[in-house]
């Protein structure tokens, strides 16, 4: 009974969708959003200079590099958008969302994964292509990597739920979108 009150998935020792589990990721995403927005505003020439306590001219070099202009919008703006999706996908839904709305949990997991991957890729490109480092870009990358682990446990709980749905021959489509009619058919 107590387990169900807290929405703990079967076979788990805790609920990965509880607020205590989710809020730190949301806070990290908001911090990442702030950093990426600041860098994007420099790239959009709203600010003339960019803060870098360690690598001097490095940040400017990186943020005005060819790689950062591959896309029609500056890469930091895309990063900011990624963090915003992470924060929203972290906030939406209650503590049972791993089974009441698997889609948001899976969007959350899929948003956190690639954001981290691209951040690490950009960290590699900084010194290899441009022989420079950018402090805030590194900070942003660190945040996006730290978010991956804690987001994946909830994804695992949702995927296990989807597996039970499949084994019970209930519609995966309806379970994924959290249709009322399939709620409770599978736990």
């Amino acid at each position: 009974m107590e387990h169900k009150e807290q929405g703990i998935p079967p076979g788990w020792s805790y609920n990965p969708a509880s607020w205590g589990q989710r809020l730190p990721i949301v806070v990290a995403a908001i911090v990442g959003f702030g950093i990426a927005t600041y860098l994007a505003l420099f790239q959009l020439k709203v600010f003339d200079t960019v803060w870098d306590p360690f690598f001097g001219d490095g940040s400017r070099k990186i943020l005005t590099s060819k790689t950062s202009q591959i896309l029609p919008i500056p890469d930091a703006a895309l990063g900011a958008l990624g963090y915003l999706v992470d924060a929203l996908a972290g906030v939406i839904g209650g503590v049972r969302r791993w089974r009441t709305m698997p889609w948001i949990v899976i969007v959350f997991g899929l948003a956190v994964g690639p954001l981290g991957f691209i951040s690490v890729l950009l960290v590699v490109l900084q010194p290899v292509l441009y022989d420079a480092w950018c402090t805030l870009c590194l900070a942003s990358a660190a945040i996006s990597v730290v978010m991956i682990g804690p987001a994946m446990d909830e994804m695992l709980a949702s995927l296990q739920y989807m597996r039970r749905v499949k084994d019970a021959r209930v519609s995966l489509w309806k379970a994924f979108w959290g249709y009322k009619e399939v709620q409770g058919k599978v736990i």
Binding site: P9, P10, G11, W12, Q160, D167
Partner: peptide, 18 residues
């Protein structure tokens, strides 16, 4: 912690979470 049988359980019919 316990994790319902972990990631490997996604490929098994019989698992802790099931």
């Amino acid at each position: 912690g316990t994790y319902g049988g972990g990631w490997a359980s996604l490929w098994k019919k019989d698992s802790l979470h099931a």
